[in-house]
Design a protein around this nucleic acid. Structure first.
Lengths: 356, 356
DNA sequence: CTGAAAGCGCTTACAG
DNA sequence: CTGAAAGCGCTTACAG
């Protein structure tokens, strides 16, 4: 920006010190509320700081001290409500603690993830909260981040040597899928599919395990044809809906990998003349905002992403304060079933109930 | 993080220089791809950089050069899909240009906004993209940000001296509301309300102006009772729905301040036994994801927040390159009507059409 | 094509 | 309670 006046130099500690007839050292102590400084001096400095519109230069301070009040957050897709709410939670907790958020997103690409992290790492964040892209190579990540950066892995497990020593916050995927499946069993469904997700992602594996747990506890074995993979997006789910009915006996209900898939499935069912909640029961996972306003409203497993974000940030802050044991800390966040109308028993009708 | 080994000192330019038998200056030149350096030297340095896992220290570089590759983005609420998608667009464009995103959110509180900006400013971002909180005091903001920070104000106009010289990117609110209103007129509605928003926000004023434009062009004057204020949230809108029917003649359609309000109104209508799209026509503004899956699908004005984010970031990057005229640059982004089923003429039925 | 030196704005022992 | 000096890791003229 071309300025009229010849670039009004930035106000520094030296300016304040000179104006007060003090040394930079003393002004610096005032800035950090040192009790060493005489109250009168402090007041004088404070006034001058204010008068000149001084802005602290954190870069310089970080350089000198070797530290930073920035925390990096890298998610897959900020436009995904799950991650947006997660990020909002992280941001709130960090801001409260006086930290600043450096944000990046990867679009599920390990390559972009590497590039984004390299760029963020140059800013020397105090810690990293990472929701890893699919097929992340932990060893490669570790090479980039070095041995000392505190890392909290969120949502998807990272295996191998690389991830050793990194903290981990996950949803209780297994329990969530178990609850979802039990709910359908309780409504009389016996032929229950698990729909969507990629088999090789840790969260999908865990959710499938919970699904199997519940079936096994009910003495049922899932028909292999009831395990349908698809990308965790609405569009793909709508396209794959037909795969559920390829076999005989076809399922009468499905536990879905997540809400996006569940909503896509509901659209796919409609396109086939089937009504979710009436002809076919559906349960999702995540409880995104749309779940409540879908028609019929979607029964789902609530992950409370904002609470997860707060939790993640607090974990990291605790780690930074050195108050966490050195061993990697793994936390599994509880999850709850939110029952709505997409998962009625086959015999129930949808004509009851009121509009959303 | 307590480390086993006694804190393996960070690798610096000096280390690389020493290992290569060169000076720091030369290594620094290699880092910035200076053509001055001999190709062999460059290769040698590159290899050593890689071997030692060197990480550039941008803080130090910024301190010396006086510049930064960070851009700050401050929005009202990251959990709001409109802002989440906007932020995703900003992030994508910045990352592509090698910039890094510093994120903050204000929750519509001018106090928090002031605090968040103060915190971000200490990191010396190259520029700021700000979607201001309601009732922002531009002069106060200016005092905090100083005279030199390039600022792009998004979405809501800031008035007074304070905002002088700041760039501005807005939606074409007036035109959007006009399109929405014309659409309802074309379907035969004559008694059309403007529902939701706060009268004192610039975007609400603009949208109301577009609404009046369209009515005036059709030779109609809005009944004052058809201008209903309410907070731009779903819940408040649902509560206020009744206010539309307080007067006689009651409107048969409403242009809503945004989609959240429109969805709330649809729920409020349902609670009163009226069906949106059949008994009462509704149009929204924003085209959030839920608009397409609502029942009936919501006709709305598409703002394409992701595209706005890309646009905002590009504007700022152009400004930083000094390629924009010094005068403040104001851009009004076009907006388009997305016709769906919530805005049918009263006579139409909802039984036609296929599922979303 | 490469090096020696100064300096960006802060903080931190160390004196006094 | 306050000050002088060194140094964090880089870049930038200036020499050569």
């Amino acid at each position: 920006m071309p300025a009229e006046r010849p670039a009004p130099r930035r106000v520094t500690l030296a300016d304040i010190a000179a104006a007060c007839g003090l040394s930079k050292a003393t002004v610096s102590l005032v800035l950090r509320d040192s009790p060493l400084v005489h109250a009168d001096t402090r007041a004088r400095v404070r006034a001058e700081l204010e008068r000149q519109g001084y802005v602290y230069h954190r870069g310089a301070a970080s350089l000198r001290r070797g530290g930073s009040n920035a925390v990096a957050l890298v998610v897959n897709d900020l436009a995904n409500p799950f991650f947006a709410e997660f990020a909002a939670g992280v941001d709130a907790a960090l801001a409260e603690a006086g930290y600043v958020l450096l944000l990046g997103s990867t679009g599920e690409s390990p390559e972009r993830q590497q590039a984004v992290l390299a760029s963020l790492a140059e800013h020397g964040p105090a810690a990293l909260i990472l929701s890893p892209a699919e097929h992340t190579d932990a060893a490669r990540l570790r090479r980039l981040l070095g041995p000392r950066m505190p890392v909290l892995v969120f949502n998807r497990a990272l295996d191998g040597e690389g991830a050793a020593g990194w903290d981990y916050l996950a949803l209780d995927n297994r329990q969530g899928a178990r609850l979802a499946t039990e709910h359908l069993l309780a409504q009389g469904h016996r032929a229950i599919a698990f729909f969507g997700g990629h088999r090789d992602s840790s969260s999908c594996q865990e959710r499938r395990a919970g699904y199997r747990d519940a079936l096994a506890a009910a003495g049922l074995a899932p028909d292999p044809g009831w395990l349908v993979e698809c990308a965790p997006t609405r569009l793909e789910a709508a396209r794959q809906a037909g795969a559920l009915f390829a076999r005989d006996p076809a399922p009468t209900a499905a536990v879905c990998y997540n809400d996006a898939v569940a909503l896509g499935l509901m659209a796919g069912l409609a396109a086939r003349g089937r009504r979710a909640g009436a002809d076919f029961a559906v349960v999702g996972f995540d409880d995104i905002a749309e779940a409540a306003v879908a028609v019929p409203p979607l029964t789902t497993v609530a992950a409370d992403p904002r609470a997860r974000g707060l939790q993640a940030a607090r974990l990291v802050l605790t780690r930074l304060r050195g108050e966490l044991p050195p061993a990697p800390h793994a936390v599994v966040a509880p999850v709850a079933l939110r029952v709505r109308r997409s998962s009625l028993a086959l015999s129930d009708s949808l004509t009851e109930g009121t509009a959303a």
